[in-house]
Design a protein around this nucleic acid. Sequence first.
DNA 1: GAGTTGTTTTGACCTAATCAAAACAACTCC
DNA 2: GGAGTTGTTTTGATTAGGTCAAAACAACTC
Lengths: 153, 153
Amino acid sequence: MPQGTVSQTQADPLRAVISESGLKVTAPRVAVLEILQSAPHSSADQVFNEARKSLSKISAQTIYGILASFTGAGLVRRFDPPNSPALYECRVGDNHHHLSCVGCGLVQDVDCVIGEAPCLTPSDDSGFTIYSAEVTFNGLCRTCQTSGSPETG
Amino acid sequence: MPQGTVSQTQADPLRAVISESGLKVTAPRVAVLEILQSAPHSSADQVFNEARKSLSKISAQTIYGILASFTGAGLVRRFDPPNSPALYECRVGDNHHHLSCVGCGLVQDVDCVIGEAPCLTPSDDSGFTIYSAEVTFNGLCRTCQTSGSPETG
DNA sequence: GAGTTGTTTTGACCTAATCAAAACAACTCC
DNA sequence: GGAGTTGTTTTGATTAGGTCAAAACAACTC
């Protein structure tokens, strides 16, 4: 039995998820999925730095490739906050929204305002076929409010 | 009376808008606002190329600076679509949403689904003070549907 | 266990955007 | 109407985030 830096026990379900998406199961991919589960809303760079702790030889381009293939396969969801790099998360398929702090960049999940499907329907789709809806609330998190606005401070 | 490339007549209300925001009125600023009015959802680069037609010596950095100050002053709204540079538009203050075509990048305005204010209220704000909400519907525009999905060839 | 196919690595490259300092122009005051 | 102050624009370098192509490599199939 091969011994990696990731224990086979906790990696098994991850391996299954990757395999079932039609993607080959590799150590970098398992690592990326594991990182995304323990630290949602991670940027490609954050995933890279985290992955290097267990896979010292991994390259940044590999991370970008894995995140792109995972996003394409529907395993992870990509989220583009303003003035910040793209973030990735494992929570997919529930059309949840995001709270984004303009002060510190903190991103937090928030359940859909209306329910589930309604959020995917605009008042007038102008002939568009809608695939997904991104709802982002920009504001100031509790910590940034307490420590004073970063704009006026 | 000074004669510029922009007729004084149509520029006057623009000059007033800029001035009332506490910003100095300059030819580049009037030009940027005019461009944004005639071509909403323009990227900084598009604004730059358009501005060069009348102001040949203008630099890209000036455009970035103007767009940043306009955004700060609330004159224009910035919108960050995924996989594309930031877009800018003059339509502000009505909390409207966007339809974004994943095929050709076309962006179209769409009025708020619910009304006006409700869209600014998430189901649970987790202590956040919400400033604004960004709602983006990703899909395929009519043209891209007709010409076949770019994803499947 | 060998072969095929998809994955990772390596390295160059690109776009979007930012920063700092000097040249410059707009508004204010007289 | 003209000088001074202050904010704006220009110039040029620099950065972050991300992409592309080809060779080395590893995972799954038979």
